Simulated assay, not measured.
Amino acid sequence: MNTNKLNFKAMKMNYLNLNLMKTSKFILGALFCLTLITSCSDDDDPIPVLEEELITNVTLTFVNNANTSDTVVMSSIAPDGQDGASTEIVTGDFTEGATYSLNLAITNASENPADDVLNDDIIPEADEHFFVYAVNGINLTVTRDSDDVDGPDSNKLGVNTTWVAGAVSTGNFQIILVHEPEGADDSDEFGSVTGGSEDVNITFTNVEIQ
């Protein structure tokens, strides 16, 4: 066989091998860059922030277990949400010695129809919410019911509660809804928390037991 032909074939093979090596290096380099870009892009993506629910209306309806016509209604209306101006109204008086069940309604009336924040957002995310109650001057005691919803740290959420009116008195009633508390405790029934943010903090004044 002609020596020139052999040398030409050898040169051609070397050229092909060299191009193959260059192509492989290019592909590997491109894959590395793509992986690096994707990784950096994932790291730089902002973490989505869950906005707090807009709450415009909070209504507490206490119903006497022995006389359903005996009710006390406490309502708070904040058209721009709980951080804005609000109006609190108390209708009716507690009856001395009576036991009441509390029905809660928490809505966003800026939607049409109104958004049921309690049942659509708070209860489904009960492990991230906790109700704290407080009284000052009025003789009311509370029990978190056995069928109450489980909240954070196996504590009762405080959405299903029973209230007993003691001796005749007048004072304030406070309801607080805490979002993502660091710790919650229902051992004294009224409830207490550490940390978290307040979705609701409302005080009703001049609440009476007659």
Rank of each mutant, 00 (worst) to 15 (best):
F94K: 02
L50K: 08
N65I: 13
A98S: 12
I77L: 05
T91D: 07
L54M: 11
T99Q: 04
D42Q: 13
I106R: 01
D83Q: 10
T38C: 14
E53W: 03
A105I: 10
D93N: 12
Y100P: 00
F94L: 07
T38L: 12
P113H: 05
E111D: 15
S86D: 05
F62T: 00
E96Y: 13
T35F: 15
A78M: 03
S86K: 09
T56R: 02
A66L: 11
I77R: 01
A85P: 07
V72T: 02
E111Q: 15
E51V: 12
E53R: 02
I77N: 06
N65K: 11
N65F: 08
E96S: 14
V73E: 02
S39N: 11
E88P: 02
N65L: 14
A105E: 09
L60W: 01
C40D: 10
T35W: 15
D80M: 13
L102T: 00
A98I: 13
G97M: 11
P48H: 05
D45M: 14
P48W: 09
D42G: 09
G97A: 14
I89S: 01
T91I: 13
T59K: 11
V90T: 02
V58I: 08
G81R: 00
T91K: 08
E111F: 14
T35R: 14
P79N: 03
G81S: 02
I77F: 03
A66K: 09
P79C: 05
L60A: 08
D70G: 04
I55V: 11
N112P: 04
V49Y: 07
D43I: 15
N108I: 12
T71K: 03
V58G: 00
N65E: 13
S101W: 04
T38S: 08
E52Y: 07
D70N: 12
C40V: 15
I55F: 01
A66E: 10
D80S: 15
P46N: 07
